[in-house]
Design a protein around this nucleic acid. Structure first.
Lengths: 200, 200
DNA sequence: TATTTCACGGAATTATATTTTTGTCAAATT
DNA sequence: AATTTGACAAAAATATAATTCCGTGAAATA
């Protein structure tokens, strides 16, 4: 229920408690995961009554979605809109792939914790699924853009996108390769996959 | 509380209800996941009172662990013990890698549903984590065995194991490649990874 | 057959989480 | 200044799940 506010102080208070709620929620989500976090957890952390949460966010979906906005801008995910710009001036396939790996790796590093936690509960909480689908679309757009000059097939794009997906990144991260080596390995695997995908 | 049973019929009844509980539990776990399944869900499905569940399995951990036994034998995971035998008579690296991919792929196909569901709740339910760690150890043992004649470094084994992990398999499965093509792709990626891992 | 044992289900109890109700006080309006 | 509005917290009301208690009847034992 958005309101018309001519009332300055009340509007500010409203906004402030809203932000306190979101801060507390994100903290707890980072600590225990999304699904296991309860309303009373949040209220306690924010120093508010539970009823206040409902006033601001009638459903859990609303709350998670609102967090999504903050999280999105904190992790700056790749988007279809930013894809073209990310490869500006790079013409060789090699350069473009290197840039692809850099960009996505940097993004996953920024978002590792939250992407992992969100992934766990995505089919429990629709807002999370929506969020992650948007992330995946962004990654795929980057892959497509990186491969654009190579006239890669749809299939090739799919395969490379799989290789650049978060679950795969996350598993490889468990090896304690340096970031440098890790990106190098990824790039090589992509080359290999592209060659292989030609035969499909 | 195990008992001394000389009493035939009671022992049988006890065993039968135990199996009914496990059957119902596994059904529900397959349908809704492990964590979201409640004791009353299980009791209803099994046609038993909830109290009966507690008598047979005092804690959730006991129940999940007992399911684990059945699940384990249904999905026949690779184990360190079976690793050596799986590559009997195969001498060339190529043959061994092909066998590795076949074996693990077949296993993941058998276990896909449950491995996915278990993975989601593994850090919520210790018994699941234990189970999955055992699975991972088996896969790694197979990788090690497949690469044994190639004198691969520890690092190489790790990298290939990552490539053969369930999360990676699962993501690639989303591409709708035929099993044939999919295994072919995996094999090629492994070759590439081995070459790359040499430089690390 | 008489007595004891014990697996069971119904129902009570406890625990935890969600959602609504209500009174209060400060801010806004007149 | 008097009145109204609305943001808030405390606590009540619901809802759902975990856990325990207790009487019953069939199986075991003597």
């Amino acid at each position: 229920m958005p309101r018309e506010y001519k009332m300055r102080k009340r509007a500010d208070d409203w906004h402030n408690t809203r932000e306190r709620i979101l801060r507390a929620t994100m903290q707890l989500h980072d600590e225990k995961g999304v699904a296991p976090t309860t309303f009373s957890d949040i209220a306690k952390r924010a120093g508010l009554g539970q009823a206040t949460l409902y006033r601001h966010f009638p459903t859990l979906g609303d709350l998670v979605q609102a967090c999504g906005g903050h999280v999105w801008q904190q992790m700056r995910p790749p988007t279809p809109e930013s894809a073209a710009g990310a490869f500006d001036g790079l013409t060789s396939t090699n350069e473009r792939l290197a840039r692809l790996v850099e960009e996505i790796d940097a993004f996953y590093q920024r978002g590792a914790l939250r992407l992992g936690l969100a992934g766990r509960d995505r089919d429990l909480i629709p807002a999370l699924d929506y969020f992650l689908k948007a992330v995946e679309a962004g990654v795929e757009a980057y892959v497509r853009e990186a491969l654009a000059p190579s006239k890669a097939s749809k299939r090739t794009v799919e395969v490379v996108a799989a290789l650049m997906s978060f679950p795969v990144w996350s598993r490889f991260r468990q090896l304690d390769l340096s970031g440098r080596k890790s990106r190098e390995l990824t790039a090589r695997l992509i080359h290999c996959a592209m060659r292989a995908a030609k035969d499909f």
